[in-house]
Amino acid sequence: MTMASLQHADPAAGAPTRGATVRPAFVRRGWWLPYALLAPSIVFLVLFTYLPIVRVAVDALREVPHAGGPSRFVGLANFSAVLGDPAFIKAATNNLIYAVGTVVPTILLALLFALAVRRSNAFTAVLRVVLFFPSLVPLVAAASLFFFIFLPHLGLLDHYLRMVGLRGPNWLGDSDVALWSIMGITVWKNAGYYMLFYIAGLQNVPRDTIEAAMIDGANGLQRLWYVLLPALAPTTAFVVVIALVNVLTSVDHVVVLTRGGPTNATNLVLYYIFQEAHENFNYGKAAAATLMSVAVLLAISLGSVRAMERGGRGVA
């Protein structure tokens, strides 16, 4: 994929051929200019991204035995140890369920929210604040609040469920339910944030189309769906990448609420890495698991960027 094709992806970028024919003078200013512009970022990326990756990669190939003995080169043994660890397999499976189970509802809700509050008035102003508020709360604090919300019998959820004659499960302590409760927090926390992207994305859709479709009832909704989907494809691809990266790189709520329990029911890959590195002194295994998760994330992101490119063309 080329950068030119990525530029095409943006419908607002204007006629794609234009930049090629009339180039601003400064583009010819000197070969070094782009690199000079990137240099400040690259300095920090080298220090805090590439250097650590190299260090992690070196760690992944070595073993520093906690039980004693010299550290040594072990080739890919750490990778096979991770893949052969039932706890990792469980965490990876959980992570898959967690990723799909949070990203899909979060995006649907974000779109729904965006449709509802896309225009500015007093009512939507309140709604926007309410829906966006969870994004402002630190995940550590949100998790502590949800500890209370999910308390058996006494918590917010059970308190109000009881009023309508229902009885909730042990939200965080039942191994069949806990992961879904954790997912609920993630959806609550992120939907309002992605809503902002969809409010922006909806600008690509002619307002009349939305209004007409809505007034038209069920058929209209159906039509809206078919108009919206392709028009919002670039936004969706963008949000999917951000959302996936987000759900795979934040586990504060797991740390605060369940520490991966009961019986690993809520363990996720990132927390597995955390445990191996910082609780079990298995730095090699942690490094190997880190590299694998980076590889998976990178593959997903590249895939999404490609999808974004295709989606963009569909509109342009």
Binding site: T49, Y50, T249, A287, V294
Partner: peptide
């Protein structure tokens, strides 16, 4: 370079 930039997003903090 652009993809090298994106790599920053993928790195998990504990590591």
């Amino acid at each position: 370079l652009f993809y090298a930039f994106l790599l920053q997003l993928m790195l998990v903090p504990p590591a």
